[in-house]
Amino acid sequence: MSVETSDVRLERYDLSTAPFGAMVGIGRAALIVVPLILWELCSRFGLINGFLFPPPSMILYKLWVQSGPIGNPPYAIWWHVAYSMLRLLSGITLAVGIGTLIGVALGMSRRARLVFQPIISILMPVPTLAWTPVLLLLIGIDNRTTILVVFLAAVFEMIYIVASGIEMMNVKMLWVAQSMGATRWQIFWRVIIPGIFPYLITGTRLGTGYAWRALIAAEMLAASSYGLGFMIYDASEYMNMDVIYGGVMLIAVLGYVLENVLIGKIEAATTEKWGVLNER
């Protein structure tokens, strides 16, 4: 399970710029800003097709207008983002909860593992989107369809990672709790859940990544009025290239915020503070 890192801190994922100072920061910013400026200039001076590649400033302006009261509908961007987030977070929450329970059950019982491993291995690689037509027929164009797609996209990763987290756990941790007279319930909440926390974080991070991709695709097929996927799909019907690019940018930024900032914060408050390494 988690490895204590008191002696050697393996900061494999630490992307802090400390050792190289400002240089790295400037380099990173340049990699985003310079292509945007080139794009802007090429588009403005007609070097590339201004209809297919509208200048970034126009895209940002469009996003600004669409998120204000004169958007169509008013505050449209906020609604799209809110709907996408609602579906994503509901699906992820379900996947983390149910995935953890199933993962713990599989991890604790060798027999259950032998029975369920094949079916999970078969279902895991099925692209979530393949389920969408079935769900559409079963449920219809509804938030429940997109939430279920998000759930399916994340849940197998959760089950798999939690089960392997339990397998890696030192059985003596359970023994210590048992010899303190802990009940099964206490062992679950006080030992198993914190013990697999590094795996929970990894599972949530990977699952959120898959879910985010699946959500956008599912919204293109199964959303009727709101959602970033729907926004892009709808814009393509009307050839609103600026809205399409705006949607792509929003997806990228929100995905980054979710995976790195939000989960990163949870990580800093838990496993990093405890000095255990996240398993990936």
Partner: peptide, 20 residues
């Protein structure tokens, strides 16, 4: 018949709970 709080255990490899 099983583990119980009348017997305390200390392991060679400590087995502390790193989150506490």
């Amino acid at each position: 018949t099983g583990p119980g709080p009348d017997r305390g255990i200390v392991f060679q490899e400590f087995v502390l709970f790193p989150w506490l």
